[in-house]
Design a protein around this nucleic acid. Structure first.
Lengths: 338, 338
DNA sequence: GTGAAAGCGCTAACAT
DNA sequence: ATGTTAGCGCTTTCAC
């Protein structure tokens, strides 16, 4: 009896309860036109059989619902949760759901996660630059290969296979930060950058220094992992390699907080001896001492753009063939460290 | 022509391409037994029509897939992202997906989010205690009312309507923390607690002090919002209200870091003047200066238990009627603040 | 108050 | 290489 091996369905419940499948639906969904007695009996049977409605079947009959996959390299950088939070809330305004996928370090696991994710979502929002996430996607999910699902990249390399992207305009932001520093009498400005990414922040930094006749050598720049530990190490190198520096612009807030930590440990006073400006504008920056001045990314805007781009593609409103994009600016949030 | 108003389906593509629906499936899913020419043509038509496969229909025919909803009061407390990360990874090992829902402050929005979430997931994992999340659930989603979906509570009040829960054993952890403090010569131990929650941490704290003949008055305890700002304020009160205190146990790490900040601002040296122990064991604790000693919650274990409990219920393995639960212990992570 | 029939959009199995 | 037939599990008509 029952679809042996397979899951319990509404028909199993109906059979055991001795009613038709609609009566089961009525009982279970609180619909009218059913006697209290029958309802109770059906519910009892459903409980007993451990019946679970099949979401896919319900979804099919109820109509389309959009689910987007939010892919993060590593949720432990607080930037991503802040973004995830914004995305979850904005998506919910469109009655969309967000499936979260934290890829982690293991490439093969990451690949498997992406593979399964692409089967469950209507679009993918990628972010984070540490690994070449796009490269881990199954071929058939990607633009060009057959259909594929829409892929939106947030602040990452706008690889070919991406259907739309949001870039962050570091150029103007970096200038604002450097303006702030020079206006406060800082002129020997170092930079701590990521060692993995070809960062446009660095380009803007060099350009600015050059334009304003501020000192720059290759020794003004330090590079390390874009982690807390990377920030600690880069700051340690900076203390020895560029002891005269009176300011430093840092790749992200997590590194900047690492730098803050190392400066504190080494007796270098922030901001008296050296001003520190991070990038990201994490809430976390307000928790540390001294509070971190930072070039803030507008996560809500980023999330809004992401949803908008996905919507345009899914609805067919996007100009066919061309890759849409958005640009999001930075705001300098001045706190204590600079 | 085409199902006017409705979405483009595979039949629309088939009709326009002048082939059968099966051929469309073959073309789009990279199946064999189709000529390259037909495939290209079909893909072209699908692109042109902006065809998107209906995930529900695919899911229905491919078989059951489990999705769980992870509900968080406020993702901005770093504890939740750490937990979300663990949950996402463990769920992926079961080939389950996790839909993230960040409820936020607005009660009505939160209610609406939960309502829509319950239609999309096979089980709900709730966490966070700030609001009575269970109370916001639609009636028909809840245990007792008809069927409802399984609801698992993590470290929250195990209300009636919850089907299973994971509790955290603060009792033993608090004792370990206090042992550590007394072993290091601290005897005037204060506590900063949440003002909202009836915390078992506090009970254990009082009990321990009493047992060990350590001084306690009502003025040993301070309560505030379980936020960074709450920690700042509570520490400020502590400085005036219990100036002799040589140690303080704090409700969570975010508050503890607030306290650290206030102590630094007020020239109170940690750990020399006062030792600080937080609760949660956030990665964040290692980023601040001094690094935070903390009673660490094992988020991976928590997530594992959650998945296990959900699995037991969905599979019918759970003892009918009785609410299963798990208990997770704490580990004292000694860093610099105590 | 209850049941029978139809169909959501897709893929797998069996034709041809 | 392509088309035809079934059926996934559910809800929504419509009949009784």
């Amino acid at each position: 009896m029952a679809n042996s091996g397979s899951q319990i369905t509404i028909l199993d419940v109906a059979r055991v309860a001795g009613v038709s499948r609609q009566t089961v639906t009525r009982a279970l969904n609180g619909l009218p036109d059913i006697s209290a007695a029958t309802r109770e009996r059906v519910i009892g049977v459903a409980r007993q059989l451990n019946y679970r409605p099949n979401r896919a079947a319900q979804g099919l009959v109820r109509g389309r619902d959009v689910t987007i996959g939010f892919v993060v390299d590593d949720l432990s950088n607080p930037f991503y949760p802040e973004l995830a939070s914004a995305l979850s809330r904005i998506a919910s305004e469109h009655a969309w759901s967000v499936i979260l996928s934290d890829l982690g370090d293991d490439q093969e696991k990451a690949r498997a996660r992406l593979e399964s994710l692409t089967h469950r979502v209507d679009a993918l929002v990628l972010t984070g630059c540490r690994t070449d996430t796009v490269g881990l996607l199954p071929d058939d999910a990607v633009r060009g290969r057959a259909l594929g699902i829409p892929i939106i990249m947030l602040d990452g390399s706008a690889a070919d296979r991406v259907d739309a992207f949001v870039e962050i305009d570091y150029q103007a932001g970096v200038r604002a930060a450097l303006d702030h520093l020079t206006a406060n009498g800082r002129h020997r400005i170092a930079m701590i950058d990521s060692s993995h990414i070809a960062s446009s922040r660095r380009h803007a930094y060099r350009e600015y220094l050059h334009e304003h006749d501020l000192p720059w050598t290759e020794g003004s720049e330090f590079r390390d992992d874009e982690t807390h530990q990377g920030g600690v190490q880069a700051a340690a190198e900076l203390i020895h390699g560029y002891p005269d520096a009176d300011a430093v612009l840092v790749y992200n807030d997590v590194m900047a907080i690492g730098a803050l930590k190392e400066f504190a440990r080494s007796g270098v006073s922030v901001p008296d001896d050296i001003a520190v400006i991070g990038t990201d504008g994490l809430a976390l920056g307000a928790l540390v001492t001294p509070e971190l001045t930072s070039l803030s990314i507008d996560k809500v805007e980023l999330a809004q753009y992401a949803v908008e781009l996905v919507d345009n593609i899914l609805s067919g409103r996007a100009p066919g063939g061309t890759r849409e994009s958005r640009s999001s600016g930075l705001t300098l949030v001045v706190r204590e460290s600079a």
